[in-house]
Amino acid sequence: MPSKSEHIPRATIQRLAVYVQVLENLIRDNTDVISSEHLARICSVNPSQIRKDLAYFGEFGVRGVGYYVQDLNSSIKKALGVDRTWNCALVGVGNLGRALLRHKVFKQRGFNIVGAFDCDPFKIGEVISGLEVICSRRLSEKVEEMNIEVGIITTPPERAQRAANYLIDAQVKGIICFAPTRITVPESLHVEYVDFFHHFYNVAFNITLSDNLSNS
Rank of each mutant, 00 (worst) to 15 (best):
I124C: 12
E149Y: 01
N212F: 13
C119S: 14
D29I: 00
P121W: 08
I128W: 03
L209R: 12
N212S: 13
A40K: 13
E24R: 13
I34N: 00
R15K: 15
I207A: 11
G151T: 06
S3Y: 13
I153T: 01
G115Q: 09
Q70T: 15
V143Y: 02
E59H: 11
V65G: 00
R138P: 01
S129F: 01
G66F: 11
R159E: 12
I175F: 04
I13E: 13
P156F: 05
E144N: 05
L96C: 04
N87E: 06
K173A: 02
L213G: 02
A40E: 07
F196V: 14
I113K: 02
S5W: 07
M1C: 10
V127F: 04
R109Y: 08
K107V: 10
K123W: 04
I42Y: 08
V191Y: 05
V143H: 13
G58N: 06
L139Q: 03
P2M: 04
S216K: 10
I76T: 02
L213E: 09
P9H: 10
V69D: 11
E145H: 03
I128H: 02
V133Q: 08
S5K: 10
N212K: 13
I176D: 03
T12G: 04
R102K: 15
F122M: 13
E24D: 14
H7E: 07
E144H: 08
Y201W: 14
E37K: 14
S48G: 05
M146A: 09
L96P: 01
P157N: 10
E6N: 07
I50Q: 05
L23R: 08
Q108P: 00
L96G: 04
A164G: 09
V172T: 08
A170C: 07
T31H: 05
A204F: 13
L80R: 04
G174I: 00
A163S: 14
L167D: 01
